[in-house]
Design a protein around this nucleic acid. Structure first.
Lengths: 123, 123
DNA sequence: CAGTTTACCTACTTTTTAGTAGCTAAGCTA
DNA sequence: TAGCTTAGCTACTAAAAAGTAGGTAAACTG
């Protein structure tokens, strides 16, 4: 590392790195989680669930998840169009991990809240 | 979502989002994983393990992990300096999850390899 | 006293990621 | 025929993340 100029290759350095690349990004975790909760979600619906996402980012992120085989995209050739998204088998395998992570997050948020309460009581 | 102009707040929208913010980024997963494997690692050593990290990013990332209570930084007041990093209790709670993710990654890498072999056999 | 060591810091540039804004198809309804 | 619907696309801009290149302290060694 250090001051060396290294053209780092794009290939992941290990499986931890590999996995993190596939689920990193601002919306991927929440999309996978939503798909697990609702099983099948339409594009627009997903946008409403995530609330802070733009159509551009939603499309982009869904395309990446699809390319990585984490979700399934089903197009109904209708007008107006209807596209349904759901978890793939591989994507579904990530659910225990996201569940675990969510619980960890809940716990940590709770802990932080308590810390703040204590602080404000002292003040 | 859609075309609305929304100034999205910095606070996480849910615990999944919260957790992903804390372990996202290019190096965090690998740092936590390395710390779990080696228990205690010095700054320079960690840089050598991650191989593709610069000192700047390593410092920055370690500071973030420390701020989030995921790792412990122990400074020995010596010359030349020595700083040891290890997992905190909260950070350690993430290990089962990272282990799971790593196994998922291993499996997926294996699957991809097989797919490529098949393809090249067909060609 | 010059060189080595370690764990950084800082200013700056590049790359990546995300957001804004406007546009399209194509069938249905009024 | 104008307007509504949905699920996008595209060009452009802004913001965030990462990389580059230099520098520092302070003790020890030759």
């Amino acid at each position: 590392m250090a001051k060396m100029t290294r053209k780092c290759s794009d290939s992941p350095t290990c499986s931890v790195d590999y996995a993190f690349r596939r689920i990193g990004g601002k919306y991927k975790g929440r999309i996978l989680w939503s798909l697990n909760e609702h099983k099948i979600i339409r594009f627009g619906e997903l946008g409403r669930i995530l609330a802070d996402v733009t159509t551009k980012m939603l499309t982009q992120t869904l395309r990446e998840l699809e390319k990585d085989d984490l979700i399934i995209r089903k197009v109904y050739h209708q007008v107006p169009p209807m596209v349904e998204y759901s978890l793939s088998e591989t994507g579904f395998e990530l659910i225990p991990f996201i569940t675990y992570l969510k619980e960890w997050g809940d716990k940590k948020i709770e802990k932080e809240k308590n810390k703040n309460t204590e602080t404000s009581l002292l003040a």
